[in-house]
Nucleic acid binder design. Structure first.
Lengths: 218, 218, 218, 218
DNA sequence: AATGAATGAGGGTTCATTCAT
DNA sequence: CATGAATGAACCCTCATTCAT
């Protein structure tokens, strides 16, 4: 027969509960806070103080889970990058998908159809790009991600070209162009949201694909 | 046969000659040094110390000519932006140019054909974009520049559409796409120089224009 | 017979023990150090470096507990002022004290009978007065304190005048004069300690009160 | 027949006339500017830049005429002090003046009857007093001046005591008190101009003298 | 494991002083 | 003599990191 579940020890007024939580959860909490901080204040104004307060945690904890600020930033970039790649691979992993046209459409949707979160992610993305020239680590992470996206996109385009018997189409060039276009549109959405909205950006990207693969895009 | 002209007197460490120069020259000197520093170390690692040393000047001088670091950075962005705009306007200013095809070609050349300098400029460009989300001043300068480029490009495209009697072409959409593509290509050139060179980038951009205006691009 | 107890182990330079102390204690420690610095080096030569070193603390701590140097200085003035006012009110708070003569004597004692501390306090006092013309905050704090002292002294003098049936005595004028006299004596003690000592200063102040209220001063 | 008085040399647009002026005039110009700066901004905010601009002169000139800022400040204090002493001596120099009562009255007038200038002087005075504790030079200058004033005032009071056959009057003590009172009143006028005006201050000082020497003050 | 007060290197900025013009 | 651009030490302050609790 179970006894009362209420703890026998009297609850202290406790100024702040010393929460013990699993390692991975704390890490994620901190990375999420870092993303929000970068999006809101920029990379240079993102301090450990700000991040830990945003996460509702103490200052020391960040150095406990990540060894340094530098490491936290690197891990954050890695996280954003991984997340994006996973989304992309979810669409492009299948080398012979049931419908190439549907896959193309999914790709477009994925790259230009996120809500607030995506906006934060874009801000983070470009914040790191801005520093990438000077920080080899960032550059490595970013370009590894870009290369994967490029390879997968190129493979899809090759399949489409073959399927649609498009002549004189260069899959690599089209992939380079398409991905650059997406990057450029993201940048515009971020920097000049008044001049461009998601719908128009999507229309622009779709037009690009339509020119390239008229039989596969409505 | 005369030997090397190197002076035989040993170079003194010589305390550093105090040189008085006109205001505008000093400002330019400092802006140039700032550009080099941002390109080499990133925006966040660009300190006054670094900039003034790079310029071969003393620490205090930057605050003498620009009131603050913030102001120096803003002026540097303004400078890069102005320079780019002037180049662009040099090509697009004429509303009814002798040859639309030649103008298009010039535009392409201008946007993708600079040497080392341009690479530095790109680094600066994206460094500021990365912080633009958090600094209204940067955003204002950047988006003002972007808008001008967009307007002028759109006008050119309209003239070409009308001249070529292209049907169903939307000048605005094409301009948005073209400029986004250029931005995206720049970013790739900067972040992944190993995967993309200027020639290929140009080919990609040319392909875009060719799809849009086949009669105006070789 | 035991020899000197000096330890034989050589004192290590020992990096300086990091000591965690409650907030209020640290604040007081810093304010005390500030007072000593101002007294020893003057307001303008009082740097954060000097203050924190005097307190035996690190440089950053002052900005942790006070937000800025300006704030530390203001709080220091407020502290000195409050301390003085509390001493004064301890004597003058009682509106109908058992003995007016005793109160008068206590006032005199209080205002001219402190040791080293008081000398430091005087230095602080005048250091702030010197800058008060240019810093409204200082002026506000100082004049609020002065006004309180004036009001309380005037009230005491009024009671004495009424008690002693002194004719043609103006309590306000006498209070103004008495307090100015005290200020002036303090200044002399500070600036020309060789020409005036505390005993003589007290004699001068007592003479003033004796002229005013002969029945209440021995 | 006189020819035209207009100079034959053509007036240059002259960005700033390079004025060559006698040494003493430049020195005075700078000292006056220093006084105005100290009165307006406080001692700590008085920079060479500010002083020279206020004087309408160039930065270098101050170091040409005074060797350093320290020296300029010292000379400024010396100037204010000398000026005051000269005024005082003009009244008190005569060891056996025609009328002691008149001399007393003049003294009062002199010490409490200046216009704007005097207010500036007072600010300067106390600015230096504030730093005097830490700067031996200031202390020396100030106390030398004070001592002279004390000696002369004491001499006058002695003459008056002797003339008025005041019994039990201590000239030295009265002089110390009177001068301290004046200092204190000045301080009040400076720090709390709302609570005390010149007329009331004068009444207070006169009351002091009246108590001491009833036969010599109306 | 968790906290946040404490540390101190290094940032931006000011300003007395120097010196080429 | 006179100017003010140039210098650099020294200021205040921030913030990544440490560590007593």
């Amino acid at each position: 027969m179970p006894t009362s579940q209420t703890p026998t020890t009297i609850e202290q007024p406790e100024k702040k509960r010393r929460q013990v939580r699993p390692r991975s959860e704390r890490r994620q909490q901190l990375i999420d806070a870092t993303i929000r901080c970068i999006a809101a204040h920029g990379l240079s104004a993102t301090t450990m103080q700000l991040v830990t307060r945003e996460a509702g945690l103490s200052l020391g904890i960040a150095n406990l889970h990540f060894r340094s600020k530098e490491n936290l930033l690197t891990e954050t970039l890695r996280h954003v990058t991984r997340e994006y790649n996973e989304g992309l691979l979810g669409i492009l992993a299948n080398d012979s998908p049931p419908s190439l046209a549907a896959t193309l459409e999914q790709l477009l949707d994925f790259q230009l159809s996120r809500g607030v979160t995506q906006r934060q992610k874009m801000a983070v993305w470009f914040a790191y790009y801005g520093e990438a020239g000077a920080r080899p680590v960032y550059q490595t992470i970013c370009s590894a991600s870009d290369r994967l996206a490029a390879r997968k996109t190129e493979a899809l385009f090759e399949a489409i070209i073959s399927d649609g018997q498009y002549r004189d189409r260069d899959a690599r060039q089209l992939a380079t162009g398409y991905l650059a276009l997406i990057d450029g549109l993201w940048l515009s959405l971020l920097v000049a949201p008044r001049d461009l909205n998601k719908a128009r950006a999507k229309a622009v990207a779709r037009a690009y694909l339509q020119q390239a693969f008229p039989k596969h895009i409505a």
